[in-house]
Simulated scan of single mutants.
Amino acid sequence: MSVRHSLLALLQEQPRYGYQLRAEFEQRTGSTWPLNIGQVYTTLDRLERDGLVTNDGDDGDGHVIYRLTDSGEDEVRNWFAKPVAATNPPRNELAIKLALAVTLPGVDVRAVIQAQRSASMRSLQDYTKVRRTTAAHDRPEDTAWLLVLDSLIYSTEAEVRWLDHCESRMLQLSKHHAARSRTRDVGEPASGAVAEDKSHIHGGRK
């Protein structure tokens, strides 16, 4: 998530101070990605350092107002114009967890998958319920929040499908290992039979 560009986009609408920026961001995204006020002001300091915003001073109530510069306007336009790069995907804790689970002894991978699927299904139901309630209000100001909800619903649905795929893959691997084990058992004579055969050979040499 680009906090930097989100703050610039909100300042493009009008000058604001830090707490206003945080409130506007969370209100427009349904508080899905809460911002720490310290993070907001640290980002504003960097934007000012980079010449993208300017400090308009105190508004009389102890709030420092920030305004977008011409360079900041250009930065926002470029951000909206360019697609989001997927060359450096964010760390996916679930994918990392499963990747480690299948390589470590003693981990019940199918139990991990089933527990996550149950949690993901609950989240999907919650998102769908909130979306249905929000959409029923039919208010233009809810459009931004509905778009965020749609994104959460689609990504959670994809996660559930991926978990189904993972479970299917684990089942296939289990059957494959079981088949190899049976083949190995059938192809190797029992130790007693081997000993008896050797005894017979030795006896023939006497």
Rank of each mutant, 00 (worst) to 15 (best):
Q39I: 00
T134S: 07
Y154F: 06
T183S: 01
Q14K: 15
S71T: 03
L94W: 09
V84S: 05
V130L: 13
V148A: 06
E24G: 12
E93D: 15
L21W: 04
D59L: 04
V102T: 14
E159L: 08
R122Q: 09
M170F: 07
R182G: 01
I96C: 00
W33F: 12
N92R: 09
A193E: 14
H202L: 04
Q20L: 06
V84E: 15
E24R: 13
E157A: 08
R161P: 07
V112S: 13
D50H: 07
R182L: 04
R77H: 09
M121T: 01
R49G: 07
L11P: 07
L147Y: 06
Q27I: 00
P83C: 10
T103M: 15
Y19I: 03
S123F: 12
R91N: 06
D138K: 10
Q27W: 01
A144P: 02
R205V: 09
Q172P: 00
Y154V: 13
T69C: 08
T143F: 13
Y66A: 04
S155N: 04
G187I: 02
L124D: 05
A86Y: 15
V3D: 10
L163D: 05
T156E: 07
P140K: 14
L7V: 13
A135K: 13
I153Y: 09
R169S: 08
V76T: 02
L44P: 00
K97T: 12
G106L: 09
S151C: 05
Q116W: 02
L21S: 06
A158F: 05
T43I: 08
E26F: 02
T32F: 11
H165A: 13
D70P: 07
P140M: 09
L152P: 00
L11E: 03
G18L: 14
S118C: 05
Y17H: 15
L100N: 09
R28L: 09
T103R: 14
R122C: 04
D108I: 15
H137W: 03
L124W: 10
D70F: 05
I96F: 03
E26N: 04
L52S: 10
D61N: 15
R184Q: 04
D58T: 01
V109K: 11
D58G: 02
Q20D: 15
D164E: 10
S174Y: 06
E26H: 07
G18A: 15
Y17S: 04
H137L: 09
L124F: 10
G106R: 07
I153H: 10
N92Q: 10
L171H: 14
R131G: 06
S151P: 00
L98D: 14
R49L: 13
G60N: 12
R110Q: 12
R161L: 11
G192K: 04
P89R: 08
Y154A: 10
W33R: 09
R4C: 03
V3Q: 03
G106Q: 14
N55R: 12
E75P: 00
L163K: 02
H165N: 00
L94F: 12
L8W: 03
H200D: 08
L68C: 05
I113Q: 11
S6W: 13
T87F: 05
H63A: 00
G203W: 06
K198D: 07
R122M: 12
G38A: 07
V40E: 09
H176C: 01
V102I: 10
F80T: 01
P189D: 01
E48N: 06
T183R: 13
R91E: 08
